[in-house]
Amino acid sequence: MSGFFKSSIGRKVAMALSAFFLMIFLLMHVSVNLLSVFSEETFNAASHFMGTNWVIQFIMQPILIFGVVFHFVMGFVLEIKNKKALGVPYVKNNGAANSSWASRNMIYSGLVILAFIVLHFIDFWFPEINYKYIEALPADPTRYYAELHHKFVSPLRVGAYVIAFVLLGLHLAHGFTSAFQSMGITAGRKKTLKSIGKAYAIVIPALFIIIALYHHFNH
C-alpha cells in the first residue's frame, strides 16, 4: 500500500482524501459561524463547547491542522512534479478553449487560501491559544461573540476575507468534483454530484461572506 501512495495516482488519492476532510470541516465551521448571525447566546455556547471540549481541542484540532498542512504540502509537491514534466513552454496556448480558469489555477487559488489561513490564525487562533493555554486566563463563556464582532470592524480585513472566500469558491468549484474523480468516482458525469458540488462551492463561501458583512455593517 505504501507503494500506492508514492505513485502519481496515489498522491492524487491522498490529495482527494484530505480535500474531503477539509470540505467536511468547512461545512461545520460555517454552521457554527452562522449561529452568530441569529443568536449571540447560541454562538457563545457553541464556541465555548468547541473551545473547551478536550476531544475537539486535543484530538480533532491536531488532526485538522495535519489535514490542512498535508493538503498544502501535497499540493506543492504535485505542482513541482507537474512543472518538471513540462517541456519548452508553448508560444501560444489557448487553455480557455478546453478547461475552466478554476481548474487551471488551483495552485493560485490555493495560495490565496493559504495566505488567508495565516491571517485567520493571527486574527483568531493565536489569540485563542494565548488566552487559554499561555496566559491561562479564567474561562469566559460569553467572550466569543464580542471577539468575532470586533474583528470585522476594519473594512480592510473584511475586504481581504471576501476576496479569500471568492477564491475559496473557485477552488471548490473545481476541487469538489476533482476529488471525486481522483477517487475513481466520475462526479463530472453524475448529475446529482455535479449539482451538489456547484451548490457547495457557491453556498459555503457565500455564507462566510454574508457573516463577515453582517458583522461589519452591524456595528
Binding site: S8, L86, G95, N98, S99, S103, R104, H174, Q181, S182
Partner: peptide, 14 residues
Amino acid sequence: GFGNCTNTGACEIE
C-alpha cells in the same frame, strides 16, 4: 516523467 492529472478535462475535449 509524465505529470499528474489535475482533472481539468482539457484532454477529453482535445
